[in-house]
Design a protein around this nucleic acid. Structure first.
Length: 654
RNA sequence: GCCCAGGUAGCUCAGUGGUAGAGCACCUCCUUGGUAAGGAGGAGGUCGUGAGUUCAAUCCUCAUCCUGGGCUCCA
């Protein structure tokens, strides 16, 4: 009944396809190594060492070599997992006698090179679970034993040289295939990713088929670091941080110019799309957040606002509780905190909706708010502009009827793509995040919400992924992810369907049938956190903001101080035309002025000398075209910059 | 919050158990120069903060704050 098993190596050899550079094979969906038997007759295609699909195999095998090297150098260290990841691999170790630091890398890499040079063949071995257990227990590999207990089906071991690991493969034929290897960093990581579990030590590394490709990768990392928004933000005088406001950015004048334009851009979009902007309070009575569910769910991450009154009441409450435990006292004080800084705008918007009697004629009601939000992000999770403790979103809540839900979501999806296009983002990942374990509302409501999102995405024909359990506590969401310079994905835009919060706030509107209905609420943001968007945008454009966003669009550079008056006049005229312009009339030579302005990534340099003053024009040099455009009259130049001062979606069609 | 690394002038960095250095930026002067750095001089730091070891600490130890790389988390 069962077809006889053959290894891919045997099959390829028969077909004459077994070259020295074949490291694995595709068999349908699966990637298998040359020693994993398949039923005779299985269609297989060889994977060459240079094939992109070879990378994961090379890296996973490299992780084994790393673990081997580490166990040779640091006896007693236990192994856990070592998968290939997007740009490399890692291996998690349990080492009791010390910590790995990057200083150890040289030694470990040297040992790895020895193992590679020995060109040990990888060998695969299928084993009974009980035997595997005995083996691993004998080796003292308790993490592997624990993992084994959860495994079902065929149990395989991989060996190279003396080293053996519980592993399903696939692996390269021998360690000699691992020619270009580099360890990159160390980090802590919880066993099985659960913070209640012991912390292991993780070593990250990367591997490529050749040194040339490894070098190219390291070079690209280097280039990416140059675009890091924290570095550019400082160099270009966009943002700053101060220890007295941890994880809270200052937007310097140049950064604030851009920040403001991001918001202006969204405002203009709102004006065209039926949104109404509001301004709402910063500090609310805690009762609001209890109703909304934020305090019970995210109380740990809220800033509470204490007043003298709070402290007095807390003191009295504590005095009344002699001998209480620390935990009880904690609660006693916490309970006296009456006010909290808003971490979200939605509860405030629910209050607003509920302030007057609403009619179906008012729906959909789209309430926009650029209110400042504060979230006490745990130390260690904050990062540059991409994860901060104070930020503002291009936040809006759409209160609508069930009938309107679908069209609102679809309209929003259209807006998101148009906006991302204006900013030059093309690679957008769409993720639908479904119900989490900790949530409000019934399963029927969640079924409906999730279906609404999925239907809309499908109606738009967008490819999407599902992230199970990743939704907000009040509703599922569609997330839009973009990547930063280092390839790390960030969620920017989102739209979330929420049947729960309107219910929690007991919101209603009078329908056509003259009875009360509960509105559905959509939480949506396109840029998401303006701070985060700013950071990702800086990296995306490498600090070279398009003309419509640049803090200064033109730098007037004088050749001699004989033309200072003309330069001043040019500045006045350009400003009058709404163009953002600065002048450099310093004693620097022209070359230095150009260098400075280019380093600040100004889109246009306008050189002014006696010739230009005489002919009432400018010698223009363009950053984006990276060349001199030659002499332009003031009028021609003004017309050009004014056109480019609009995002592409708002430019007149030419 | 957890693991690891770092914090020296405005910026980028070097450095030492005996109270600190470079380049750029800044200030002054000279130079009026045509498309990526003209020249000279000057000023600027209680070496993140607190404690400890030491005759002596920027350097060693501990604590703490901040930042970075990860883990967990992200309404």
């Amino acid at each position: 009944m069962n077809a006889p098993l053959r290894t891919p190596r045997e099959i390829l050899a028969e077909q004459g396809k077994l070259t020295k550079t074949v490291i694995a094979v595709h068999a349908g969906e699966r990637t298998l190594d040359l020693m994993t038997p398949v039923p005779a007759g299985t269609e297989i295609t060889p994977i060459d060492v240079t094939d992109p699909d070879a990378l994961a195999v090379i890296r996973h095998s490299t992780a084994h070599v790393l673990a081997d090297a580490v166990q040779r150098l640091y006896p007693g260290t236990k192994v856990t997992f070592g998968p290939a990841i997007e740009n490399g691999f890692y291996y998690d170790f349990d080492r009791r006698d010390g910590q790995f630091t990057e200083d150890d890398f040289e030694k470990i890499e040297a040992k790895m090179r020895e193992i590679v040079a020995a060109d040990f063949p990888f060998r695969r071995e299928v084993i009974e679970k009980a035997d595997a257990k005995k083996l691993l227990e004998g080796m003292g590999e308790n993490f592997k034993v624990e993992h084994l207990e959860r495994l079902q089906g065929e149990i395989s071991l991989y060996r190279h040289g003396e080293w053996v690991d519980l592993c399903e493969g696939p692996h390269v034929p021998s360690t000699g295939f691992l020619r270009a290897v580099k360890l990159t960093s160390v980090a802590g990581a919880y066993w099985r990713g659960d913070e209640r579990n012991p912390m292991l030590q993780r070593i990250y590394g990367t591997a490529f088929p050749s040194q040339k490709e490894l070098d190219a990768y390291l070079h690209s990392l280097e280039e990416a670091r140059k675009r890091d928004h924290r570095k550019l933000g400082k160099e270009l005088e966009l943002i700053a941080f101060h220890p007295l406001a941890p994880a809270s950015p200052f937007f310097l004048p140049r950064g604030a110019q851009i920040y403001r334009r991001l918001i202006d851009y969204v405002r203009a979009l709102y004006d065209r799309s039926g949104y109404q902007e509001v301004v709402t309070p910063q500090v609310f009575d805690r009762e609001l957040f209890e109703t909304s569910g934020h305090l019970p769910t995210y109380g740990d991450n809220m800033f509470m606002a204490a007043t003298v009154e709070t402290v007095e009441r807390a003191a009295e409450a504590l005095v009344a509780k002699p001998g209480a435990t620390a935990e009880e006292l904690h609660k006693t004080v916490w309970d006296q905190m009456r006010f909290g800084l808003k971490p979200m705008n939605c509860p405030g918007h629910c209050l607003m909706f509920g302030m007057t009697r609403r009619s179906y004629r008012e729906l959909p009601m789209r309430i926009a708010d650029f209110g400042r939000l504060h979230r006490f992000e745990r130390s260690g999770v904050t990062q540059g502009l991409t994860r901060v403790r104070t930020f503002c979103q291009d936040d809006a809540h759409i209160f609508c009827s069930l009938d309107q839900l679908q069209s609102e979501i679809v309209a929003f999806l259209g807006q998101v793509y148009s906006v991302y296009q204006d900013f030059g983002f093309s690679e957008v990942r769409v993720v639908i995040a479904t119900r989490p374990e900790k949530r409000m509302g019934s399963d029927e409501v969640w079924d409906r919400s999730e279906a609404a999102l999925q239907t809309a995405v499908q109606a738009k024909g967008l490819p999407f992924e599902i992230a199970p359990g990743e939704g907000a506590f009040y509703g599922p969401k569609i997330e839009f992810h973009l990547k930063d310079a280092l390839g790390r994905p960030w969620q920017l835009g989102t739209i979330q369907v929420d049947y729960n919060m309107p219910q929690a706030f007991n919101l209603g509107y009078v329908g056509e049938d003259n009875t009360s209905h509960t509105p559905v609420m959509l939480h949506r943001a396109i840029l998401g956190s303006i701070e985060r968007f700013f950071g990702v945008l800086v990296e995306h454009v490498g600090g070279a903001f398009p003309v419509w966003l640049a803090p200064e669009q033109v730098a007037v550079l004088t050749v001699t101080d004989k033309v200072n008056d003309y330069a001043a006049e040019v500045v006045t005229l350009l400003k009058a035309a709404g163009i953002r312009v600065i002048a450099d009339t310093s004693a620097d030579k022209l070359g230095a002025k150009i260098r400075n302005a280019r380093n600040m990534r100004l889109p246009y340099l306008a050189v002014v000398g006696l010739k230009e003053a005489e002919q009432r024009g400018l010698s223009i040099r363009s950053r984006d075209e990276n060349k001199e455009l030659g002499f332009l009259t003031l009028d021609d130049f003004i017309a050009r910059v004014r056109t480019e001062s609009l995002p592409s979606s708002l430019r007149p069609n030419t």
